[in-house]
Design a protein around this nucleic acid. Sequence first.
DNA 1: ATGAAAGCGCTAACAA
DNA 2: TTGTTAGCGCTTTCAT
Lengths: 345, 345
Amino acid sequence: MSNIRVTSQQVAQKAGVSQSAVSRVFTPGASASMKTIEKVQKAAAELGYRPNSLARAMVSGKSRIIGLVVAYLNNQFYPEALENLSKKLQERGYHVLVFMASNSSENIDTVVEEILDYQVDGIIAASVSLSPELSNKCRAAGVPLVLFNRAHDSPKMSAVTSDNYAGGQKVAKYLISAGYERISYIAGWEEASTQRDREAGFMDTLNASGINLFSRGFGKFEMEESSKATLEMFSKPKELRPEVVFVANDHMALAVMDTLRYELGLKVPEDVSVVGYDDVPAAAWPSYDLTTVRQCSGQMVNITIDILLEEIESDTSQPRIVKIDGPLIIRGSTRKVKGVEYERI
Amino acid sequence: MSNIRVTSQQVAQKAGVSQSAVSRVFTPGASASMKTIEKVQKAAAELGYRPNSLARAMVSGKSRIIGLVVAYLNNQFYPEALENLSKKLQERGYHVLVFMASNSSENIDTVVEEILDYQVDGIIAASVSLSPELSNKCRAAGVPLVLFNRAHDSPKMSAVTSDNYAGGQKVAKYLISAGYERISYIAGWEEASTQRDREAGFMDTLNASGINLFSRGFGKFEMEESSKATLEMFSKPKELRPEVVFVANDHMALAVMDTLRYELGLKVPEDVSVVGYDDVPAAAWPSYDLTTVRQCSGQMVNITIDILLEEIESDTSQPRIVKIDGPLIIRGSTRKVKGVEYERI
DNA sequence: ATGAAAGCGCTAACAA
DNA sequence: TTGTTAGCGCTTTCAT
C-alpha cells in the first residue's frame, strides 16, 4: 500500500533501475525503453508514487502555477470568470493560486510580492490596477502578466477587456434612437478603466448628438452606494427625474432596479428604464430582465489564457492589448423600439 | 536594481556573510546578531531579494499552500466563502490553490491527486463528496482534509456544515405554525448531504405533526432544473397545487420564485410561498426577499480554517465534525404569522 | 552567533 | 537507452 510521500528513489530501487530512469518515465518528452517504462510503472503503481510538483518546479524553473489576483467576488462576473479560468488552465496543466486583494495599493503590492515568491509562471490580475512599478517588478522577475478586465496606458503589459468604449457608444445610440431624453448615468469606481471607458463612449456619443447628460451618480461598483445614488437622483419632482439610467455595471444596476421599484415605487421600464453592463447571470433572471452590454466572459478568458501561456512558453512574444466586442442585449428593463435593429442574442 | 530571481547566495556575497546567515535572517525564529541582520537586510533590499517559497517548501516540508476543491461557483454561497477563506488564510500566511471539480468521481480523483502533487499542507473540499479511498489517500499522504458544507459518515475526517437537519426542522415548524397545509419540497442534488439532511429534518418534523408532504420536485441544485420542477409541480388545478414550497437551497429558490411569478403568473407570497436555504446575498435583495435559513458563512469559514490549521500544525489533533446552527430568516416570500416568535436578524 | 556541509526530490547534461 | 553527477534555492544540523 501507499506510504507517505514516496520518492522516485524508492521507485527506482523497487524497479531495479536508476532514479533518473524513473524521472524519465514521468517526464513528458523523455525517452526510455518499453522494458524500463513497464518496470517503473509497475513499481510506481504499487508504491503509489507521483512526482513531486514542487521539486520538479525547482529544478525545471517552471512551477505550472498561475497567480490570480482578484478583488470583488461578490460581482457575479468574477466567479464565473474564475471558474472558467481555473478549469481551462487545469486542462492545460496549470493551476491557479488565488490572491484576494483590496484595491488599496499597499495591499496589492504585498500581494504581488507574495505571488512572486511562489515562483509562479505567470500572473493574471483581474479587476485590479497595477502600478507601473509593480508591473516592472514582474517583468524584472521574468513573470508575464496579463490584466483581465482592466485596461491601462502602458503598451508594455498585456490586457484583455471588452470594448468598453464601444459598449458605452452602443448604449448611447440605442437610448437616443429609442427616443429617451432625460438620460442619466451612475458611475462605478472612478479609478477603474472599465468605468472610465464605458462612460467616455457613452458621453461622446451623447454629446455628438447634442444631448447633455441629465444627471450623474456615484455607485463605486457597490450595491449599497448605487442604491444611495439612486435615491438621491430620484429625490426630485417627476420632471426633474431621468427617464433612463445607464449604470456602469450590472452588479450595481440590479441594486438600482430594486431601489427604484421597492424603495421608490417606480415601475421599470414604464416609469424609468435601466441599462447595465456585463450581462451577468442575474441580468437574465426574469425579475430583472436587464438590458445590458454583454462581456463575453468565456472568450475573454480564452484569450487571456492564450496570451499568458504564449508569453510563458515563448520568449519572443510581445504584449498584446485585446478588446473584445460585446453585443447590446436588449431586454425588458428598457422600452421597445420599433424599426431599429440591434444585435441580439 | 533588482535582477531576475535573486538568491540568498548573492545576498550573502554582497553582505559579506555566509548563505546560511542570510537564511537565518529570513527564517522566523532563527537567531543572528544585530550586525548580521542589518548587513543582510541592506544587501537584500538593494538586490530586491525575497526567499523562494518553493525551495523553502522543499526543504521544510511545509508549502503553506492549501488546496481548495470547489464545484459550483455560480451558487452565490461559494464565491463568498472562497473570498473569505482565501483572505483569512492569507492573513495566516497560507495561500489557496484552486481546483475546480465536477461532481463526477473520476474527476475528483484526478483533482485530488493533482493537489497532492503540489505538496499542499492541507485540503479543503467545498461542496464535493470524497470517497473513503480518496480521504484515505490524503491521510496516507499526511495531508489533513476538511469537508466544507458537506457531511459524511466516517468520523475519521473533519467536516464543517451548518446544522442542516435542525435547519430543515425550523422550516417545518415555521410552516406548520404559520398554518400552511399543502406543503411541497424541491430537492437538491440527491447525493449531497446538505440536501439529505435538510430534507430529513424537514420531513421528520412534518411527519411528527401528522402532515404528509404534498409533492416533491427535483432541482439538482440547478436553476434550470428547479424551474422545470416548478412548472411540473404547478401544472395542475389550483387545489392540487402547494401553498408553500421549501426549496433545498436559495440558488434554486430564486429560480423557483422567478418561474412562479413570470412563467406561471403567480404572486409570492399571496398565491404561493417560498422558503430557501443558505441566505445568499440575493435572498436579501428586495426582488426576492426570500425567507431562508442562514448558513453563517463567515463562521463556517473560521472554524474550517481553525480545524485545518490545527491538524496541520499539531500532530495530535483529532478529526472534528462541527455543525453550526443558523437562524431562520423570515422575509416577505412567506406569510406573516402573528404571535409566533422566531429567530430573526 | 556563524560558516560549512548535507540534503529536500527532482530534471538535465554528460558519459558510457 | 541508461546510469552517474551536478545542481535548483533553501533550511537545518554540526562544528567552531
